[in-house]
Amino acid sequence: MAVGKKDIECPPYAEGTPLSDEDIKSGKVTYVEDHPDIRYSWTAGQAISRFLNGLKEGKILGVKCNKCGRIMVPPRMFCELCFKPIDDWVELKDTGTVQTFSISYIDPDARPLPEPIIVAVIAIDGASPNMGIMHILDEVKPEDVYIGMKVKAVWKSEEEREGAITDIKYWKPLEG
């Protein structure tokens, strides 16, 4: 083993060859392109299947653990803190409180959206404090949303509902 370098500034040099998008498009660099088409079908599992079937009936279902006393949503088959099976299924209200929110100008691929959308974490009434789900807010101007705002689910019609998180179209301010 040699003795290491001393009295140097690190990193001593910066290696690597930067490229621009243009270098790729113009074929300046050698590259290979591929578009894998991989398909998946995710089973929803025991707890979330029951939750989704509840949504189809216009209900938001939670679960209760009698040991820690938490009423949880989204539901799960076991309490992750007590590490035991949950004790009860509970029907929660379709109202809640905005815990935090964002006004999104981008889609999942970071492309600009034609109109910004409002996304929020909504703590569901009837569940323990801070038990929220992520969903969309509408029928409200972005500048009028605030943390602590009471909101209510706007459901798809019974025929349209299919047992998906999108059976709730969005949440709107609860008047009064």
Partner: peptide, 16 residues
């Protein structure tokens, strides 16, 4: 199942 149908972008979690 619960998030992706809402068309999220990863920036959302940071914004929230």
């Amino acid at each position: 199942i619960l998030d992706r149908p809402l068309n999220p972008n990863l920036i959302w979690i940071f914004a929230l």
